[in-house]
């Protein structure tokens, strides 16, 4: 019973870790007035991918096409557009592929649903397996739990025993 609770505790801990590690997404402040800085352009460009250079974020892509895209972002920022509006503009023009991850609609839901579901199935299957392993031979299980003193308690004792054995056989 104790083991089961510890397993749940462990699962809980892992889940908590999962939740807390979700990155917080900082939204770019849309600047009102004044020159738009390169950094503001890059904050938007970081999340976009141009079709010309596959898999390279727009903010570091060296091609001419990408430089044009960055100019367009600067223009829009100057006009007071927000980051989300600009991203949407690019999506409308060039399709979903400009986003770093597919927008969660239609079949794209599968991207986000399938891995967690499979992982949870894995957790469940593993848990069931633990249970079935422990149920089959109560005899052997008892051997371990009933005589804890006979089993080496820690690595120290393991080491000691190992050394003794070796010494004995060396002679």
């Amino acid at each position: 019973m104790k083991n089961r609770t510890s397993f749940f505790l462990f699962t809980f801990a892992v889940l908590m870790l999962c939740l807390s590690a979700l990155p917080s997404i900082a939204l770019a402040q849309s600047s009102s007035g004044g020159e738009v800085t390169d950094d503001e352009v890059n904050t938007v460009a970081k999340d976009l991918y141009c079709p010309v250079c596959e898999n390279i974020p727009l903010d570091v892509c060296p091609t001419k096409a990408c430089a044009d895209w960055r100019d367009e972002i600067r223009l829009k920022l100057n006009e007071g557009w927000t980051k989300d509006q600009i991203k949407q503009y690019f999506v409308d023009r060039f399709g979903d592929r400009v986003l770093g991850a597919p927008p969660a609609r239609g079949i794209n839901w599968l991207v986000y649903i399938l891995p967690p579901v499979l992982i949870l199935v894995g957790v469940y299957v593993l848990y069931r397996a633990f249970q079935s392993w422990r149920q089959i031979p109560p005899l052997q299980a008892e051997e371990f739990t009933a005589s804890p003193t006979q089993a080496p308690q820690s690595q120290d004792e393991y080491m000691k025993k190992l050394e003794e054995q070796l010494k004995a056989s060396d002679r």
């Binding site: 590690a21 979700l22 979903d96 592929r97 400009v98 597919p102 794209n108 991207v111 891995p115």
Partner: peptide
């Protein structure tokens, strides 16, 4: 539609 599955997906899923 062609989609990109890029760093945001992997980082969020694999980080934890």
């Amino acid at each position: 539609q062609k989609v990109t599955v890029g760093p945001p997906y992997y980082e969020r899923a694999n980080g934890p």
